[in-house]
Design a binder for these strands. Sequence first.
DNA 1: GAGTGGTCTAGACCACTCA
DNA 2: GAGTGGTCTAGACCACTCA
Lengths: 246, 246
Amino acid sequence: MKSTSSSSSPAYQPLYRQIKHLITESLMSGEWRPGEPIPSEFELAQRYNVSQGTVRKAISELAHQNLLVRHQGKGTFVASHSEERKNFPFLRITPDRGSLDAVSATLIDFWRIKLDADSARKLAVAEAASAYLIRRLLAPAGASVVYEEIRLPATVFEGLSAETVDLHHCMLYSMYESAFQVRIVHVDERIKAVAAEGEIAARLDVEEASAVLLIDRVAYTYGDKPVELRRSYCNTREHHYRNRIV
Amino acid sequence: MKSTSSSSSPAYQPLYRQIKHLITESLMSGEWRPGEPIPSEFELAQRYNVSQGTVRKAISELAHQNLLVRHQGKGTFVASHSEERKNFPFLRITPDRGSLDAVSATLIDFWRIKLDADSARKLAVAEAASAYLIRRLLAPAGASVVYEEIRLPATVFEGLSAETVDLHHCMLYSMYESAFQVRIVHVDERIKAVAAEGEIAARLDVEEASAVLLIDRVAYTYGDKPVELRRSYCNTREHHYRNRIV
DNA sequence: GAGTGGTCTAGACCACTCA
DNA sequence: GAGTGGTCTAGACCACTCA
């Protein structure tokens, strides 16, 4: 591969970014699947006809974005939610005291629906497109803390069943990978405080009009493609949302 | 500098991390101040007697942590909040529609206090240590959206006055740098939904017992030293807290 | 044109894993 | 011991800034 180092090029990209893009394409195509090793740096250098250092730089950026995981002496692996059981990077709700251990999830119901205009827009699909709606409760240490509604476009998750959802309870993102080859790579959230009303108050076992946390999430897979909408209501009496900003 | 590449060393650190530590020490000591350039990679390589590549790797990590900012062709600079006017990485409250432009801050009052036990513990100072308490309102586009109480240990911010706080309104972190040589490098937050009561409801112009967002922040300077406590109450009727998780 | 950071290479050697 | 990623070097050249 030759570096296209022309300063007049409208979209000049250094070599390592071109390599990064090629690796990402292989991840998207499923050539290497979550949890599996990718070829060694030496092999990739040969394949792309660049130096090992250039491959390293591409892999470093992908590892930084949590798309790849490197293990010295073993190899480089495609990041997988099933191997992140311990950290739960996308679950920010934490007990005020102690730590989060066993989280039990209870499926409330499961529907095939037509998306409303707003949801369709956020998922970048046609209005009234078909989708699955999951409603469920998360209960760390027994108490109902989170009630959530999850919308999944049918084009991506065709064939999803209540049984599949129920089986994987709190490990949904790991199920997306294994059953649908959909890896969630980042999420955007909007957080508000709202008054719990009706069913939500009942589900969270709080008084009508109590203050609860509302988290509106859009989850994206490779290539910034939105594939999940999630609205969570959280009882923050004994839990909080933790965040670190650097 | 020689690499101490002994596998039996209890705390083996690669060369570039040792360099990173030396650079951090210079930042802490104030040898290079926020906004100022640090020596070029070539000069630092000579100073530490390592290759330019090793210095680059150390600087890259520091740039990634937002402690340094690199500008191709110009040099490497100590990160400064006053040069981040545009992004406000630590201000996560955003209007639901449109973007945040002018934020006006109104000082409510300013006190010299003795820290309660909990605050003293979070700031890692002795109980009843002296501190400043700032209470103020933030009003993007006129409406009062955030009421906050800020606690600053007197040992670090000795001589702070209401006038200084008032002058710098919403750019407090930039004032910490210029007036006290304290650069905030990261913050930890705990977020809850609570009912607004009494003064808080009045200040935010919401009904008693309305749901508001509570953000408890600890802000740290170099070396993970806590130097600010901030409790913010936010009216999220037309604003939200935005977050991206990768 | 001089000086800065940014990319890329080739090669040496270290640290770790696994058979 | 073979294979992996991790570190470090020296050197070439590119891209950008500023006088």
